[in-house]
Design a protein around this nucleic acid. Structure first.
Lengths: 341, 341
DNA sequence: CTGAAAGCGCTAACAT
DNA sequence: ATGTTAGCGCTTTCAG
C-alpha cells in the first residue's frame, strides 16, 4: 500500500548516516565498513528502496537505451532481427525502443526524432521503401550518433551496415532455375528505388548473362514488395504471348502472392511455371517455396554488437558486414521428373 | 561536427539572460516578452539545442514510458496488438519498451523487473504459458503500478484485462461444425494450465452438450499451442479405432500443423476430416482454414487506453473489457457438397 | 516580464 | 571509513 518512492536520503535519515555512505553501500564500493553496508542493505530492503535510474542517467549522461526503426514488424523477418538485437544489448544492460515506420518516410522521420528526443545512445535502422531521410541521417552521423543500418540501407551514406549479398544470392536463385532447365525466367522486382530491388535485379541479370540467356525487358516487372502486389505482375505476365516458364520474385510475399494467383488461374507450380522467392518466410516454407533464407537473428546480433562498439568508442570506423545466406530448394522450382518421391 | 549538448545554461549565457527566462521561452510560458522568446528560440535553433528529457523527467517524476511484455512477437498476433498500443500511447507522448518472455516464466519475471527498474509508468502484459509470477504481479498491483493484461491473463488477479470471450467463440466454432453435420469432433487443446485452454475447452464442451452430443474424453488432447505440437495429437487421433470427423484446434498454429500432418497421411480436409482454428492467422487464411478472428489492433488500442486512464488517475477502478470476435468460415470446414463453386 | 535560488535523486571528488 | 559539497539539466516558486 505504501507508495514506494524511498530515496537514499530516506535511508540515510533512517540510519542516521550520510547519503554518500548509503550510495557507496548500495553501489558495492570497497571503501565502506561491511557492517554499515549490511545495515544499509537491510534497511533498503525493508523500505523497498529502488534506485532512481533517471537521476543516475542524468548524472552519467547516458540512458542505456538504443532505438530501433524498422518498416514493419508484423511478419517474422524484423521481429527475428529485433530479438537478435535484444539478446545482445540486454546483456549489456541496454533497453530497446522499437518503432515501425509502416513503410512511410514521414513516419520514419518522426520515429527517429522521437528516439532522438528520448536520448537513445544509438540507432539500428532499416529504412522504409521510399525513404527520403538522407539529410536526417547525415545530420545524425555528423552529430556523432552511433547508427547501424540493417537489410534496407541507404547506399549514399557512409555508415555501418549489416546486409547479405543480395546480388550474389539472387544470382544463385536464378542460376538454380536455369540449371533446372528453365529459360524464360521472369523477375517480379520490388519498388524501383529500393536498394534491395536494384541489387537483386542485378543478380538476376548477372545469371542470365552468365548462361547466355537473352535479357527480355518484358519479363521484368516492378511490382513492389507486398503480397497483394503480386497479382498485377501475374496479370501482365500471363498476357504476354510468350509466357515465362519461371518466376524469380523479389521476396517471399510476392512469390506467395504469385503462387496463389497462379493457382486461381488453374496453373500448377512448378509444372506450368516455377516460382522462387527470397528471404524465406514461414508461409513460403509451408507452400514449399524455394527461397533464399537470411540469417535474421544473426543480422540482429551483429548489428547490435557493431552498434555497441560504436557507442563505447565513438571513433570506431564504420564497417559493412556481409553475412552469409542459403538457397533452400523446395518443390516450387523442381521439375516434376526430378522431384524425389 | 560540434557535438551538440547545448543546455539552457549555454543559451542563457549566449543571450545574457537567466536560465529561468530561457526555460520559460522554450516552454511557451505566457509570462514572457514575445521579443525575448523569439531571440531565445532563434538562438536555440542556431545552437541546435535539444532539451534533456532525463532532467525534466527527474523533476517531474515520470518518464513517459510504458512497458509491454508478451510471450513472443514473431507471429502477427502480438505485433498487431503492439501496434495498436503504440498508436494510442505515442499520441500522448509515451514510448513503449517491448519485451518478449519467449514463453518462459523466468524470463517474464526478468523482463518485468527490468521494466520496473527502467521506471516505466505502467505495464501491459500477456503472460507466458506457464507463468508462475502471481506474487510478482500482486506486489506490483499492491504498489500501485498501473497494469493491464491482454489475451493471456491470470484469473486469480484483480487487475484490468482486455480479452475476448473465448468460451463463447469456441462454442460458436464447434457449433458451426455440428451444424455442418460433423458429430465426432475432437479438440486439440493447449497447455493444461493456460487460461485460454480452459476457456476454449469449456466452449467446446458447452457446444457438444447443447446439441446432445456425448462428450468423449478420448477426443480431447492437450497438445500445446505451437505448430510442431500438432503432430502428436494427430498421431493419437488417427490411432483411435473410431476416428474423429472434425477437429477443433485451440489455435491456428495447431490447426495448420494438423492440416499439414493430415495431408502427409493422404487425408483430405474437409472431405475426410474438417479442421477449425482459433485466432485467425495469415497462414491459416491462405490455407483456407475456418477460424475465429480476434480484433488484435483493437485489443492493443483498448488496453493502452485503459492503461493511460490508470496512469492519469491511480484510483481508476479495474475493468474487464471483452471485445467482439468473428467466426470466418472457409473451406477447411465446409463439406464438399455445400461448398460454393 | 525577468532573475535568483531551491531542489528532483544520485554520484564523485574532496575532505576528515 | 565516513561526511560534506557540488552539480548533472531542468522547472518552478518567490521576489522584484
Amino acid at each position: 500500500m505504501s507508495s514506494s518512492k524511498t530515496t537514499i536520503k530516506d535511508l540515510a535519515k533512517a540510519l542516521g548516516i550520510s547519503i554518500a555512505t548509503v550510495s557507496r553501500a548500495l553501489n558495492g564500493s570497497h571503501e565502506i565498513h561491511p557492517e554499515t553496508r549490511a545495515k544499509v542493505l537491510a534497511k533498503a530492503k525493508e523500505l523497498r528502496y529502488k534506485p532512481n535510474i533517471q537521476a543516475r542517467n542524468l548524472l552519467k549522461r547516458r540512458n542505456n537505451m538504443i532505438g530501433v526503426v524498422v518498416p514493419e514488424f508484423i511478419t517474422f523477418f524484423f521481429p527475428e532481427i529485433i530479438i537478435g538485437i535484444q539478446e545482445v544489448v540486454n546483456k549489456e544492460g541496454y533497453q530497446v525502443l522499437i518503432c515501425q515506420s509502416n513503410e512511410s518516410s514521414t513516419l520514419e522521420r518522426k520515429n527517429i526524432e522521437m528516439l532522438e528526443e528520448s536520448m537513445v545512445e544509438g540507432l539500428i535502422v532499416s529504412v522504409a521503401k521510399e525513404s527520403k531521410n538522407l539529410d536526417l541521417y547525415e545530420r545524425l552521423i555528423n552529430e556523432q550518433m552511433p547508427i547501424v543500418f540493417v537489410n534496407r540501407i541507404l547506399p549514399e551514406l557512409r555508415a555501418s551496415q549489416v546486409i547479405i549479398d543480395d546480388r550474389k544470392w539472387a544470382f544463385k536463385a536464378v542460376e538454380h532455375l536455369i540449371k533446372c532447365g528453365y529459360r524464360k525466367i521472369a523477375h517480379l522486382a520490388g519498388n524501383e528505388h529500393l536498394s534491395v530491388t536494384k541489387r537483386r535485379l542485378q543478380g538476376y541479370l548477372d545469371a542470365l548473362q552468365a548462361y547466355d540467356i537473352p535479357i527480355q525487358e518484358r519479363l521484368i516487372m516492378y511490382v513492389g514488395i507486398q503480397q497483394d502486389r503480386a497479382k498485377a505482375g501475374i496479370d501482365l505476365l500471363m498476357n504476354l504471348k510468350e509466357k515465362p516458364d519461371a518466376i524469380f520474385a523479389i521476396n517471399d510475399p510476392i512469390a506467395v502472392g504469385s503462387m496463389l494467383e497462379l493457382k486461381k488461374r488453374g496453373l500448377k507450380v512448378p509444372e506450368d511455371i516455377a516460382v522462387v522467392g527470397f528471404s524465406e518466410s514461414p508461409i513460403g516454407k509451408i507452400m514449399e517455396l524455394t527461397s533464399v533464407s537470411q540469417p535474421t537473428f544473426e543480422i540482429g546480433r551483429i548489428a547490435a554488437e557493431t552498434l555497441l562498439k560504436q557507442i563505447k568508442n565513438f571513433d570506431t570506423p564504420t564497417e559493412t558486414i556481409i553475412l552469409d545466406a542459403k538457397l533452400n530448394i523446395r518443390n516450387s522450382s523442381i521439375p516434376v521428373h526430378k522431384r524425389p518421391k
